[in-house]
């Protein structure tokens, strides 16, 4: 397999279980992400998604295994890997603008003050924040606006990899939709590589090129990598008309509903737990037939 832009190799995370033993959250997880790709990871709580995210961000150390980005091993946090946290993580004593310039200044220390500010304003404008709003403190902003600031801060830094940890988890459904659209808009303009955790299947289908599915923990693993065969640009009202939409959605629901449990808790015997690639495409003609039917594949996995 060709080396991916981001490659996660045999990542294992164990924690002490409080009774002298160890609890293996996931074991030998391996997968790759290509440059410019938007990848979502779906799985139930406790399967270790956030742990994987923290390891990719460099905020946590895996028990074993390596993460390589651009061929270099990742160790510790870096400006090359931007993070948008679920709880926004804005500094409450700084205004929205200052929160963004805080990041830009760290990224480009030799830029002049006005250049830093212009750059920050440009990215705030991209998420729909301009005018006097940018001088407000986070406590004076709504949850959606705070998350916009957080997204602007991450994109303004041009990280090589952008990590989104359930960025819309705390937002109401309508705000969530608007910000998803904004995220898509900025993302398509920047060719940013994105890795995102989510609980929301529809959100994942709308945003992602590929969805990684995790089984339940302990001994969770990244079981499948589902390609989203819906062409871009996508629009939330149009994609549901696409023939692949419900096929993919049903596959995901089925995985999360039943198979994630069935596959859980099994200690793997394979050394390298690469996810199986699943491609569901009802529009394609010749190549699709070469692919096994999803149903047939499911049986194979269950055996």
């Amino acid at each position: 397999m060709a080396k991916s832009f981001l490659s996660i190799e045999r990542l294992t995370q164990q924690f002490p279980d409080g009774q002298g033993g160890t609890l293996t959250v996931f074991e030998n997880a391996s997968f790759g992400i290509e440059k410019g790709e938007f990848v979502c990871i779906l799985g139930h709580s406790g399967c270790g998604k956030s742990t994987i995210m923290n390891i990719l961000a460099g905020l946590a150390e895996p028990t074993s295994g390596v993460v390589k980005m651009d061929g270099f091993e990742v160790s510790g946090p870096s400006l090359d890997r931007g993070v948008v946290f679920q709880n926004y993580s804005l500094l409450p004593w700084l205004s929205a603008l200052k929160n963004v310039t805080f990041g830009v200044r760290a990224r480009y220390p030799d830029w002049s003050k006005s250049k830093v500010e212009d750059h920050a304003r440009e990215y705030l404008a991209m998420v729909g924040l301009d005018g006097d709003v940018v001088h407000r403190k986070p406590s004076q902003l709504s949850g959606g606006m705070r998350q916009r600031v957080s997204i602007a801060r991450a994109f303004a830094n041009h990280p090589k990899l952008l990590l989104l940890d359930e960025p819309f988890g705390a937002l109401d459904a309508l705000t969530r939709g608007t910000i998803q659209d904004e995220l898509l808009k900025i993302w398509s303009g920047t060719e940013q590589t994105v890795f995102m955790i989510t609980h929301d299947i529809d959100e994942a289908i709308l945003l992602a090129d590929r969805i990684l599915l995790m089984t339940n923990g302990p001994f969770a693993r990244v079981a499948e990598s589902v390609e989203i065969t819906i062409p871009r640009p996508r629009n939330r009202t149009e994609i549901i008309e696409h023939p692949n939409y419900y096929a993919i959605r049903n596959h995901l629901v089925q995985f999360l509903g039943t198979r994630s449990k069935e596959l859980a808790g099994k200690k793997s015997d394979e050394a390298d737990n690469r996810p199986e690639t699943v491609r569901i495409d009802k529009t394609a003609t010749a190549p699709a037939e070469a692919d096994p039917e999803p149903a047939a594949r499911l049986r194979a996995v269950n055996d």
Partner: peptide, 19 residues
Amino acid sequence: DWVNVARTHELGSFRTAFT
């Protein structure tokens, strides 16, 4: 979270302490 913001922005310990 705020310390993590400083860490992901590669701030040194001195700048983390002050900013």
